[in-house]
Write a protein that binds this DNA or RNA. Structure first.
Lengths: 336, 336
DNA sequence: TTGAAAGCGCTAACAC
DNA sequence: GTGTTAGCGCTTTCAA
């Protein structure tokens, strides 16, 4: 920068008022007389004044920064929620004066990073996303009375008092299954994650619910595997051999890609011979031939709710609303 | 938070020294006598002291924040560089005491956001990524003497004096083409972007170079289209009809997915009948059947160079090194 | 409605 | 080596 930016004092001098009056013009314009306000605002505009963040942060004991820990990209999977979520969060929080600051998780210790940022008052609050890991952060943060909003329900502790926002995975799987039933399918298989995944079991319950509600049996039509393409491929091959399903609903697009792979090897056409629906509406689902139908999480809407919760948390007095559960949508393409 | 965190004064009192000595213990430990240092460090540890960021920022006139503008996710494409790059950047910059702060671009005005963050001294520097747009930011930032590092060469102004880091797209396309030539292909087609894309033309030149170096003709084997799956599909269909290529090198994985689509429709097996190589090594390339070979950008290494440049820029005195051009790698899968 | 005084927590400069 | 003084730019009393 050529020279240091103008300060409150510069504006005050130019407008012929005191520094406090300028501060009021910025933060409580209602307090000023009309003509004074105009004069100060003119001076602000002429000088291109903007309050110094560090000074304001020091004084108000707030950084207007939201901390978000990001994990390494999972190569070889179709997982790409974060990209969309992060962007939505940045947009939404920016609109109410907050910025998103990223920090890295080291995988080993999920708490790493949180503590330091809190103690150094670098961030005002956190958005915690990887609540599926068994969730030590949320408990720890809650114990520390640190403000945070979780993307993900407190599965293991329904009485948890922190604000959260989540997507109704069961409703998503149910929607996909009902759609297939409406198209005439009766033997609809489920390929999901291992039983220790709350999210996986939740999604699976939507499939079960839809099947049973329509008087259809789920026996031998489900399996639980690792979230990899090859697992999805093997699971679908086995199911095709042993249970002859006409459709698959999967807990992820990654698994669904495995199913498409198996169909391809067997000369079966997705959508025509066998229907396939994935989960998350990843870029992969969008560009793969012939198009993979998928349950799409409303991440934009979710970010709005997260920011709303954040505002409550950081308000005076702080306010914690009830958890918010959003309904996903079904993106239909040629596969289902 | 239950109570406000300890300050320098708290530590000083506990260690029986002055505040300045504690500050020195943190920032210039070499200045202290051994036993004093130990005493202060003990007090720091006992209290869990960490310097208050806002105060330090105010005093040192630095925020230790790097601004990164992110754009909306491009749905329907395979573009996913940012996710990997952002993570690498966060990790690398975190290691040297910087955090990455995100802000949103509004698409309309590419300068929006930059100015305010600069004037409010919210960030120390920027990392500018979307230099392909015609690049108004870099020129504007340079004119404003704002510290920034570009991911992307100053295509339109080779004399630009700002630090930049880029990936050698021509080398990537060349590598892919040479690989195909080594496998015996002679009629290798190029599907690239429209001519106004510097990056696209750069990558294309690698294909041309490899072909000519091996005495192969490029006539009628290239086309330039929009970066969409359907464009890639149509272009490859036309090329197959009119020029009978045995292999395709594409400027993006998105285009390559279009090629795979065409091959599928014609009953041609990728890799066996027709080879296909994409660009960027997206998740799509990794999970699609039967595996899409792709040129992979070394984003981790790139982030390291970006941070190195940033450190130079923010050092005393500031130092601007020459631009850095990194070589991509070739990820081979069944398609090529 | 406006201004004066104080201080957020820290570090740079200097005196001891 | 260590302590003292001053001040970064802002907002929050409180007085005028």
């Amino acid at each position: 920068m050529p020279t240091s930016p103008p300060t409150l004092a510069d504006v005050a001098e130019r407008a012929g008022v005191s520094r406090q009056t300028v501060s009021n013009a910025v933060n409580n314009p209602g307090l000023l007389r009309e003509d004074t306000l105009v004069r100060v605002q003119d001076a602000i505009a002429e000088l291109g004044y903007l309050p110094n963040r560090a000074a304001r942060n020091l004084r108000t004991r707030a950084s207007h920064l939201i901390g978000l820990r990001i994990n390494p990209v999972q190569e070889g999977t179709a997982n790409a929620l974060m990209d969309r979520f992060v962007h939505s969060l940045v947009e939404t929080s920016g609109a109410v004066g907050y910025h998103v600051m990223l920090f890295a998780g080291d995988g080993e210790n999920p708490l790493a990073g949180y503590d330091g940022l809190l103690r150094s008052t670098t961030v005002d609050a956190f958005v915690v996303t990887d609540t599926y890991l068994g969730n030590p952060q949320t408990a720890w943060l809650a114990g520390r009375r640190a403000p945070f909003v979780a993307f993900g329900r407190p599965w293991d502790d329904p009485s948890a008092a922190h604000p959260w926002v989540d997507v109704d995975g069961a409703a998503g799987a149910e929607m996909a299954t009902v759609h297939l039933i409406d198209k005439g399918h009766q033997r609809i298989a489920w390929i999901g994650w291992r039983k220790d995944s709350f999210i996986g079991e939740d999604r699976r319950s939507g499939w079960t619910r839809a099947m049973h509600a329509h008087g259809l049996s789920t026996t031998a039509l489900a399996c639980r595997v690792e979230d990899t393409v090859s697992s999805g491929g093997e699971a679908s091959a086995k199911l095709l051999d042993e249970a002859a399903p006409t459709a698959f609903v999967c807990a992820s697009d990654t698994l669904a890609m495995g199913v498409l792979h198996t169909l391809y090897l067997r000369g079966l056409a997705p959508g025509r011979d066998i229907a396939v629906i994935g989960f998350d509406d990843s870029q992969v689902a969008q560009v793969v031939h012939p198009g993979l139908s998928s349950v799409r999480q409303p991440l934009e809407e979710l970010a709005v709710e997260v920011v709303r919760a954040l505002e409550g948390l950081l308000g005076h007095p702080p306010h914690v609303g009830p958890g918010v559960l959003l309904a996903p949508t079904l993106e239909l393409r040629a596969s289902g």
